[in-house]
Computed example of a mutant assay.
Amino acid sequence: MDAVIPAAGRGSRLGKLTDDQPKGLVDVAGRPLLAHVFETAVEAGADELVVIVGYEAAQIVDRFGDTFEGVPITYVHQRERLGLGHAVLQAEPHVDGTFLLVNGDNVFAGSVEPAVEAVGEANAVLAVEEVSAEVAATTGVIETDERGRVTEIVEKPDDPPSTLVTTGCYVLPEDVFHACALLRPSAEGEYQLSEAVGLLVRAGYEVETVRLGERVNVNTPEDVGRASELVRWESETGS
């Protein structure tokens, strides 16, 4: 299975940490952030990494080269940062079949393999978690039926219909590329992946939800500290 890793952003909220390097190279527990993401994808069974690069892309290419732990890497340049849906669309020529998507700024405790395993019963899988209503208003909010299947996804709603949100880990069919191509930009000029998944749901695709272990979405210097603590805790406990 291919794994797509969006890692084009600068990470402006990280301040001086990304003045002269991309977000993916910020140090987390002694290793670049992307090394943790790549490891997560490889441990879940990825046999090729398709990495979407942008800001200071050459530094990422120089740091990781053509392979990671024996798994080949293909780099794809996102010349304009226009949202996750736009980033994913850049990977289309390099992906064959259903693929794993792990955002390049998410550090997970434990494996994301349960998301990969769940796709046999559905067309796509979203890893989800419960958050506060305040946090839900800032991201993709999910509504499900009694089976846990997705019935609707709303991006950054003023009045969240639930507190179940996406976590930056997806298993998606190739048809999501067509859905991404149909997207219209948001008010901020971005193309949202959650809306593309919503198009699949409305077209009748079965989209499953799974809950994984703890994770940290690295956006601020404080998040870097939390992610480092999570990695060290996982190493010490063997979780």
Rank of each mutant, 00 (worst) to 15 (best):
V210Q: 00
T163Y: 06
P32H: 06
E130C: 14
F38H: 07
I73L: 10
E129D: 12
G238C: 04
I60G: 03
V53A: 12
G168A: 12
A44C: 08
V53E: 12
R79W: 07
T167Q: 09
V197H: 03
V112E: 05
D66G: 15
D145Q: 11
V210I: 11
N103E: 05
V125K: 05
V107T: 04
T151M: 06
P160N: 00
V88H: 06
C180K: 11
G168D: 00
A8W: 09
M1Y: 02
E155C: 15
D158F: 15
E208K: 09
L82C: 08
E229S: 14
N123A: 13
D2C: 06
T167A: 02
V224L: 02
V61A: 13
E152T: 11
Q59L: 14
A44Q: 00
V28E: 04
V4P: 07
N103D: 13
V26F: 04
G70T: 07
A227Y: 08
G213W: 09
V50I: 14
T98I: 05
I142R: 12
R184F: 14
Y191E: 06
E208A: 01
R31E: 04
N217K: 12
L101Y: 10
F108E: 00
G204S: 10
E43G: 11
V150D: 02
F177K: 03
V207Y: 01
V207P: 04
Q21Y: 08
A196R: 02
P114E: 10
P160G: 06
A41L: 09
E143D: 14
R31S: 11
E174Y: 02
A58Q: 14
V141N: 00
F68K: 03
E121H: 05
V26Y: 03
F38R: 09
Q192I: 10
Y170G: 11
I142N: 10
V141Q: 11
D223Q: 12
H36D: 00
E222Y: 15
A115R: 01
A35V: 07
Y55S: 07
G85R: 01
R31L: 11
H94I: 04
H178Y: 15
E39C: 11
M1C: 04
G65H: 02
L33K: 01
V107I: 11
P114C: 06
L101S: 01
G70H: 00
S239E: 14
D96L: 15
D27L: 03
E117K: 13
A137M: 09
D20C: 14
S194V: 14
T139R: 03
G45E: 01
L101Q: 05
G104A: 13
A91F: 05
A203E: 03
A127K: 10
V61L: 08
Q90F: 07
L212H: 09
V42C: 08
P6I: 01
P157M: 10
S12Y: 15
V135G: 06
R202Q: 12
E121F: 05
V224E: 02
F68C: 09
E92F: 13
L100K: 09
E208M: 08
V197N: 12
Y55R: 09
E134W: 11
Q59A: 15
